[in-house]
C-alpha cells in the first residue's frame, strides 16, 4: 500500500481557482470588447492589444527581474488589468501613452504593493487616472462611434454626452435644447456615442454582469448598490428641477458608470469583504460619482469615485462586519 496522505479537514475542494475566476471575468468582458470593435473599429483593436500586451510584459518583467519570483502572468489578472485599462481609454490614444499607462497600472498600481492580493487601488484605474491627469488633452478627445471605424490616431472626434451636458448646463442652455444634442436613450443603451472604448455599450456590459453573477464570480452587492444609488440620487435631483438636472436614465447609460460598477468596483482585491461593507462601498461610489458629475469640474467621476472608495476599503473592512450568526436571536419564552 502507498503511504496515506493525512491532512486536516475538509478533504474536498470546490475546484474553484484564481484562474477560473480571472478568466471568467475576461469572458464577461468579451461582449463589451466586441461592441467596442463594432463602434470604434481599428482604434479599439490597437488600443486593446497594446494595453493587454504591455500589462503582461510589465508583469512578467517585474516579477522575473525585480522581485525574482516565478512569473504568474497566466493567472489572468494582468490580462484583466490590460483590458480594463484599454476600456477606459479613448480609441485614438497613441501607443506610447498606452504603454505608459500600462507601466503605471502594473508597476505602481499593483507590483509596488506586493502583487495580486495586496494592492489597495484598482491597478487599471491608477493607470487611467495617471494618464488623465498627465495627458488631459489626448485623454479627452473622443473618436466618434462608427464614423471613425477605419481610422486610428486620426479619427474624427467629438465630445461625450456627459461633456456636452456639462458644458451646456454651464453656459445656461435649457434641458430641452440639450436633449436634442445628446443621442437618444436607445443609442446610449446600444453604445452609439463617444466615450472610452469599453464603456459605451450598456447592453454588452449588462450581459457581462449577468454572466459573472450566474458563475458566482461576484455577488450582486456592489454593482446593484452603485447603480441604485446613482439612480436614486440623480432621480431626486431630476424631480426637484428637471430643467437643471438630467434624467437618471441618462446618468446610468452614459460615461463609465456601468463599466465601473460592474467591472472596476467589483475588483476582488480592492473592494470590501463583507456584504454590508460592499453595500456601503457601492453607495459611496454612487454618491461621489453623482457629486462629481453634477457639481464638480469634471464631466465624469466614476474613476475617481472608485479610487476614493478603494482608499476607504480597509476602514470599511475594519468596522463593517458580516452579519454574524446568532445576532438576530429571538429569546424564546417556554
Amino acid at each position: 500500500m502507498n503511504k496515506l496522505t493525512v491532512s486536516p479537514s475538509p478533504h474536498v475542494h470546490s475546484g474553484d481557482s484564481v484562474k477560473k475566476n480571472m478568466y471568467g471575468v475576461i469572458i464577461a468582458l468579451m461582449p463589451a470588447l466586441l461592441a467596442s470593435l463594432w463602434f470604434f473599429g481599428v482604434g479599439a483593436l490597437v488600443v486593446t492589444l497594446t494595453s493587454v500586451a504591455a500589462c503582461l510584459l510589465f508583469e512578467f518583467l517585474i516579477q522575473k527581474y525585480l522581485l525574482n519570483r516565478a512569473p504568474s502572468i497566466l493567472d489572468g489578472s494582468a490580462i484583466i488589468t490590460g483590458l480594463l485599462l484599454a476600456f477606459n481609454l479613448p480609441s485614438n490614444l497613441p501607443i506610447a501613452l498606452i504603454i505608459i499607462g500600462a507601466a503605471v497600472s502594473i508597476g505602481i498600481g499593483k507590483m509596488a504593493f506586493g502583487g495580486l492580493g495586496n494592492n489597495p487601488f484598482n491597478p487599471a484605474l491608477v493607470g487611467r487616472v495617471f494618464l488623465l491627469i498627465s495627458f488631459p488633452v489626448q485623454m479627452t478627445s473622443w473618436p466618434l462611434p462608427i464614423a471613425s471605424r477605419m481610422s486610428y490616431v486620426d479619427a474624427l472626434t467629438g465630445a461625450t454626452p456627459l461633456a456636452v451636458l456639462k458644458e451646456g448646463v454651464k453656459s445656461g442652455q435649457s434641458m430641452a435644447e440639450l436633449t436634442e444634442k445628446i443621442p437618444s436613450s436607445i443609442n446610449l443603451f446600444l453604445g452609439n456615442m463617444g466615450g472610452s472604448l469599453g464603456e459605451v455599450a450598456a447592453i454588452a456590459l449588462i450581459i457581462g454582469l449577468a454572466y459573472m453573477l450566474i458563475r458566482r464570480i461576484i455577488t450582486w452587492h456592489i454593482p446593484v448598490s452603485v447603480i441604485a444609488t446613482v439612480l436614486i440620487f440623480t432621480g431626486i435631483l431630476h424631480l426637484v428641477d428637471p430643467q437643471q438636472y438630467v434624467s437618471p436614465l441618462f446618468h446610468l447609460l452614459t460615461g463609465g458608470l456601468l463599466l465601473g460598477a460592474i467591472f472596476m468596483a467589483t475588483d476582488y482585491v480592492t473592494s470590501p469583504m463583507s456584504h454590508p461593507g460592499m453595500i456601503v462601498f457601492g453607495v459611496g461610489i454612487g454618491v461621489i460619482t453623482v457629486l462629481i458629475r453634477v457639481f464638480g469640474a469634471y464631466p465624469e467621476g466614476v474613476s475617481f469615485a472608485i479610487l476614493i472608495m478603494n482608499a476607504f476599503t480597509p476602514l470599511i473592512n475594519k468596522y463593517i462586519k458580516p452579519k454574524a450568526f446568532g445576532e438576530v436571536a429571538k429569546p424564546v419564552k417556554a
Partner: peptide
Amino acid sequence: PKTNNYDGASSCAIAASLYGGD
C-alpha cells in the same frame, strides 16, 4: 521512516494538533 504524507498547512502546531506525525 515516514509512514504517511502530511498535506496540511505547513506548521508544526497545526500538524501536532491534528495527529501524531508522519
